[in-house]
Design a protein around this nucleic acid. Structure first.
Lengths: 344, 344
DNA sequence: CTGTTAGCGCCTTCAT
DNA sequence: ATGAAGGCGCTAACAG
């Protein structure tokens, strides 16, 4: 049997005709914000729509309205909980508000983010959320700011998660404080010889977490030699490799702080692959879900992604303010098996 | 400083004017498929566009063309690698082809999928991919089929991943064979007393994996008592609970096959939380990335998600065929530490 | 409350 | 190769 000739989707006019009303009335009954339609007509329109299998042409609607409903999230890399614990939070916060949700992936190169924002601009959604950190040496920042400026000038609302310091509404985590608290916690447990597995040098998130950690150690009377701060890519595999480098140097280390959980998992797995995973304490940051299934269970800084996402959407739907607002979400240290108290 | 009055985004007409050409020419230079524009004009249009910060209004483009470029993926629940190893594959396969990508989340109730498809219809993308299994007792299937029929009648191309048996192009995994191979592998390692942790009764994926496993055991001369097949929700937490139920019954079990990896992780974590995780062998299915970091490392059926996604897109971009095609991707068993050979 | 009339921004014949 | 004109499906004024 041959395919039937591609029939046109039912249009609003078809529905209106079948219901015996004008297109305007059908529009109001179907998608209008105001209630100005007699009940009888409303019912007839809805029935006609259903019997025709009508779905609003969102593109046409967006053209007519000048803007598309809903929020678009831009995420770097994969939207998995592993690398991007934020995604799930934004998704559910969005659905909770009954807003349409769309996800755009950006590549991991800095310039990709600018490109993604311009792609989003061409969709013209009401709300744009960008998740993910940036680097201090990122030469594309001016381009990013310009793209976002344009987006907002065109009537959109942009909110950044993590991208602190840019002139837009922002939700940030207390990275410095989290690092600081982790340091004092570990020191309190009796550890003295630390190493930090961090992301490449100019990443803002890892920088703040690392600096906070170093400051916390200092306040606990512990100095961290510069060569104990390892630098590499901001992911699990790099952390795995860095741990090898560290241990091969045969330095005395009894605790490793990885600046995020997926890196901590890399550290842990390396330790396990090469002996007893408990011979060095390990701590991470984020409290991603995957931690539930690893041994030893991992000490980390818990962040409430639900709250982060919720604050972001709240900023987005609130009236525009004259100057950019920043909300900071704090986490708290959760001590688990990977950092047992030191017995001496 | 006050916000400037929301300026309109630059339109094609603005670009055309600045470049000194007509809108038609600007359109051809910017987005036209044909090359019919003199080089000099092309350059001037591109420059004008850049200087105005112009981005195509995709909605308008979609209205004019009748269809939006790119692929939309519908996924149930969260798009994380944990529950949906497919997402990452589809994302990269899509980007590899240079197609715009959009993700729509559906709720986990069967009816949510129909709703999601209709939402997608209203976006009118060229390609629609649905990832995720279904239940045999799903009363919404006719509604789903109708929604997809309409989508295709309107000119869209739908491809299902996993949703075997529906009249659309489909990429399926060899679930039965995977289960069968796992059974014979485990039997070959010396195991005799099995249990299966499966998803709720009518899920097609879990049914096939379970049936294959039972058949494999039978061919190895092992009978699986019906009460050793545990039924519950198709996720980690349910598997965790089911394992508890099983062990409390005090039955002799030396190996548990969980029908997917996240359930296997639930089993493993339960075993660990209540004693030595190695006292029972555990095997899963899918080979998700999170497995890299757990101990003991998990025996599973490896599936190439890249290949699955690639076949799906290949079907989608290939010429329409008269009857629905099905491609089956096979996996293979990978034996790891969680199922050591039985020594007797 | 409802219908009429203009657009929204873009693409695509059809001429030239 | 280019421009003019019409149309895609919907919404927003404006009358009534």
């Amino acid at each position: 049997m041959k395919d039937p000739a591609p029939s046109r989707p039912a249009r609003l006019a078809d529905v209106a005709r079948l219901a015996g009303v004008s297109a305007a009335t059908a529009s109001r009954a179907l998608n209008g914000s105001d209630r100005g339609v007699r009940e009888a007509n409303r019912v007839r329109v809805l029935e006609a729509a259903k019997s025709l299998g009508y779905t609003t042409n969102i593109a046409a609607q967006a053209v007519a309205r000048g803007r598309a409903r809903g929020v678009t999230l831009v995420v770097k890399g994969m939207p998995d909980d592993y690398a991007n614990p934020i995604t799930a939070g934004v998704v559910s916060a969005t659905q909770r508000r009954g807003l349409p949700f769309t996800l755009i992936l950006a590549g991991t190169a800095p310039a990709d983010l600018v490109e993604a924002v311009n792609l989003v601009r061409s969709h013209r959604p009401e709300i744009l959320v960008i998740a993910g950190g940036r680097a201090t040496d990122d030469v594309t920042i001016p381009a990013l700011v310009e793209a976002l400026r344009r987006y907002e000038a065109e009537g959109g609302r942009a909110v950044l998660i993590t991208q602190e310091g840019l002139p837009f509404d922002t939700v940030a985590y207390a990275n410095r404080k989290g690092g600081y608290d982790m340091a004092t916690t570990l020191a309190g447990l009796g550890y003295r010889n630390f190493a930090v597995v961090s992301g490449f040098k100019h990443g803002i998130t890892q920088r703040d977490r690392t600096e906070g950690f170093v400051a916390g150690l200092a306040d606990a009377g512990i100095e961290l030699p510069a060569d104990r701060i390892l630098i590499g890519d901001f992911n699990r595999d790099a952390a795995y490799a860095m741990t090898g480098d560290l241990l091969r140097r045969n330095v005395a280390v009894d605790a490793i702080f990885a600046v995020n959980d997926s890196m901590a998992l890399g550290v842990l797995t390396f330790l396990r692959d090469t002996g007893d995973p408990r011979r060095v304490a390990v701590a991470g940051f984020d409290d991603i879900k995957a931690l539930r299934d690893v041994t030893p269970s991992l000490t980390t800084v818990h962040l409430s992604w639900e709250q982060v996402a919720d604050e972001a959407l709240e900023l987005a739907v609130s009236p525009r303010s004259d100057s950019p607002r920043t909300r900071v979400v704090e986490g708290h240290v959760i001590v688990r098996e990977s950092t047992p108290p030191v017995v001496s």
